[in-house]
Amino acid sequence: MKLSINNKTYDVDAEGDTPLLWVIRDNLGLTGTKYGCGLAQCGACSVMVDGVVTRSCVTPVDSVEGQEITTIEAIENDPVGKRVVEKWVEHQVPQCGYCQSGQVMAATALLKEIENPTQDDVDAAMVNLCRCGTYNAIHAALKDLSGNEGDAS
């Protein structure tokens, strides 16, 4: 089956019900996307599918054929993603970092959908778990990002 990931086409040999997460990590070696629960509970495995945040551990690989998948490895190719990463660094968000690929993905998808999200929008969208409790910093970074008009640099 053919998958389009980070603007590149891969020929993937996997059964249709294999979670996208393991195809990304094992078949393709893109290990920036993390495994935390395998049960749609934590969000560590978040990627974007056609711009929408998607938990890859509960995404059968055959359900995303023909769609454009973006993983954390290509996040800085996306102007919004690049800004998110900059603010993540500015606000020194990560601690252990394990959940952060997913957090950055969720934040990027949110900002792609709503340029200037309100606090409610942020609360509704940023639902990934962080065992290190970086939630205050994530909110601070998003507040900062929401204030900006879309800067496509």
Binding site: V85, W88, V89, V104
Partner: peptide
């Protein structure tokens, strides 16, 4: 600034 922030923000 922490040395591991950028790598952790980009997977």
């Amino acid at each position: 600034d922490r040395l591991d922030i950028y790598v952790k923000s980009t997977g």
